[in-house]
Write a protein that binds this DNA or RNA. Structure first.
Length: 257
DNA sequence: AAATGGAGCAACCGCGTACGG
DNA sequence: TCCGTACGCGGTTGCTCCATT
């Protein structure tokens, strides 16, 4: 049986978008703005699922999207952010202006994870592997992926120390009960107002009160607290880098997906 | 020149969660 | 408080292009 589809699939287009569809979506959003994805296709005259429209807009049509040519700086930042946040692609993408979560994810899966392995680092945990993965030639892609999975399982068995990444907290709406100062961006006593991307609500960002990135129910740290501190310090380092580049506000904004 | 395999990436799918009634 | 709906995210699939055999 399975879950019911998100919308009626009868007569809906699937697969690659045509220039005409792109134009229709673009035109509609320019006039009416983003959102209301469910009803958007019908209003815009598109025979597409709302989800498909959203994805197309977010990953391709949105203005200011950078494509290709990931710089070494971005490359490095992705690796560091991934080591701290895990597969939180949207969070990572939020730190890289003009990059989409899908692009970062693809980049990681096709290039960086391999690079990490070649360096002898587990691409999931960022820990040193006992032996760097040897390159195997030949074999089909599916088999390669299976090998990766098997290897990752083996390594996980060897590594009993688990450090959980911070549990993500959704920030799409700040009107909810999440006290942002305490739970997400408790950064300092120098209060600064930061507007969300939609410019609807204002939040206060304060520095140096700790990094309340964990919510009350965060997953526990299983294993070395030292490791967690290490991760935490690196995150702070990243943050301080941003601060020195007047990036505090962009940092805060980047978390406001 | 044709067949095969790998890399890259756009798009789909299903799940979890926020939110409104 | 509960329930249904819409949205956002991460995992996965599958298509296209290119290099190699």
């Amino acid at each position: 049986m399975g879950r019911a589809p998100c919308c009626s699939k009868v007569g809906l287009h699937k697969g690659p978008w045509t220039p005409r569809e792109d134009a229709l979506l673009n035109k509609y959003i320019q006039v009416h703005g983003e959102g209301q994805w469910k009803s958007l296709p019908q209003k815009a005259g598109l025979l597409r699922c709302g989800k498909s429209c959203r994805l197309r807009w977010m990953n391709y049509l949105r203005p200011n999207i950078k494509r290709g040519n990931i710089t070494p700086e971005e490359d490095d930042l992705i690796i560091r952010m991934h080591s701290l946040l895990g597969n939180r692609w949207s969070l990572i993408a939020g730190r890289l202006q003009g990059r989409t979560d899908n692009e970062i994810k693809n980049y990681w899966n096709t290039y960086l994870s391999k690079k990490q392995r070649d360096r002898g680092t587990n691409s999931n945990t960022h820990k040193k592997l006992i032996e760097p993965t040897k390159k195997k030639s030949g074999g089909k892609k599916k088999n390669k992926l299976m090998n990766d999975k098997n290897q990752s399982t083996k390594v996980q068995e060897q590594e009993k120390t688990i450090v959980y990444v911070p549990k993500p907290i959704r920030l799409t709406s700040l009107s909810s009960s999440i006290p942002l100062n305490d739970s997400i961006l408790s950064l300092d006593s120098n209060a600064a107002s930061v507007s969300t991307s939609q410019g609807e609500k204002e939040i206060n960002v304060r520095e140096n009160e700790g990094f309340g990135f964990f919510d009350e129910n965060h997953d526990g740290v299983n294993g070395s607290d030292e490791k967690l501190v290490e991760l935490f310090e690196e995150y702070l380092e990243l943050f301080n880098m941003e601060k020195s580049q007047d990036g505090l506000y962009s940092f805060a904004e980047s978390l406001l997906v």
